[in-house]
């Protein structure tokens, strides 16, 4: 309905200008804090409760009811946490880079706040991915860490997240901080294909992908289902946490603005 109304108003414009304007209007529709907070309030339970239910089901299934691997034994159960966090670490950074593009190109006011909230959660998820990888690597490879292409590129991703968090807070002028962090986030996105294809481009100790979009999964359904459930649950949980933090951030901006207005008003009276 909204897109239809935009199309109606843009009739005289050229096709390319019209579509750009439509895209911009779509992104700016939720720039209004009140509208975003109302939408966020509706979405929050729809993300939170399925996240809890799916994560618990996937992890309990994976921990107690899925079979042990014939080669790796029970340590394969670490996969039900390691794989979702590994995928989410990259997906979270892709979302961070997308918010940075929205901020730099369209000056979307919520994009900077969203990027600032995705950063710390993404860094925690990446740290968990590295830690669980290390805990899986020790019994399998006999080492906590190896300077393998996949591990090293994920470590660089973790440092990119940390750099983003630091840059946002590094300037007195917050807008400059947001801009510098957005540039870093976009430049750092080059690490994402390196992470994805590192196991194909280099001879790595890390195993190749078991699940790809182009071929059938190389693992049994008895392991695939709990993995899919935990992946979906942890992803929804990530979205729920980021949404809650973003809603809080929008409210905090409103609080700062109200307090500043109050101070100005009191100054005018005195």
């Amino acid at each position: 309905m909204f897109l239809h109304s935009v199309c109606e108003t843009n009739k005289p414009l050229s096709a390319s200008h019209s579509s750009a304007s439509r895209l911009s209007s779509f992104f700016h529709r939720y720039a209004n804090p009140g509208r975003f907070l109302r939408l966020g309030k509706v979405l929050q339970p729809w993300l939170t409760w399925p996240a809890i239910a799916l994560t618990l089901t996937g992890l309990i299934w994976g921990l107690f009811f899925s079979p042990a691997d014939w080669q790796q034994g029970d340590s394969v159960r670490i996969m039900y946490i390691h794989v979702p966090t590994a995928i989410l670490a990259s997906a979270g950074y892709a979302a961070l880079a997308l918010c940075s593009v929205l901020s730099l190109v369209w000056r979307h006011p919520l994009a900077d706040l969203a990027a600032a909230e995705i950063g710390p959660v993404g860094a925690c998820i990446t740290a968990l991915c590295l830690a669980t990888g290390s805990l899986w690597g020790k019994p399998m490879w006999g080492a906590w860490w190896v300077w393998d292409a996949r591990l090293t590129s994920v470590l660089i991703l973790f440092f990119l997240y940390l750099g983003h968090i630091t840059l946002i807070r590094a300037f007195d002028d917050q807008q400059r901080g947001y801009r510098a962090a957005a540039i870093l986030a976009i430049a750092g996105a080059v690490d994402l294909p390196i992470i994805k294809f590192s196991v194909q481009w280099w001879n790595t100790l890390h195993q190749p992908d078991s699940i790809t979009l182009t071929s059938a999964p190389t693992m049994s359904g008895s392991m695939l289902w709990p993995l899919a459930l935990s992946m979906l649950g942890i992803s929804l949980g990530f979205a729920a946490i980021v949404l809650a933090r973003l809603r809080a951030s929008v409210m905090e901006s409103r609080i700062r603005s109200l307090l500043s207005n109050q101070r100005r008003h009191n100054g005018d009276l005195s």
């Binding site: 994560t55 992890l59 921990l63 670490i78 946490i81 968990l128 669980t132 805990l135 019994p139 949980g237």
Partner: peptide, 17 residues
């Protein structure tokens, strides 16, 4: 190793949420 992995996940999920 399994307990440490699941423990870390639960601790981090509780901390963030």
């Amino acid at each position: 190793f399994i307990i440490a992995s699941y423990g870390l996940f639960i601790a981090l999920a509780l901390y963030l949420s």
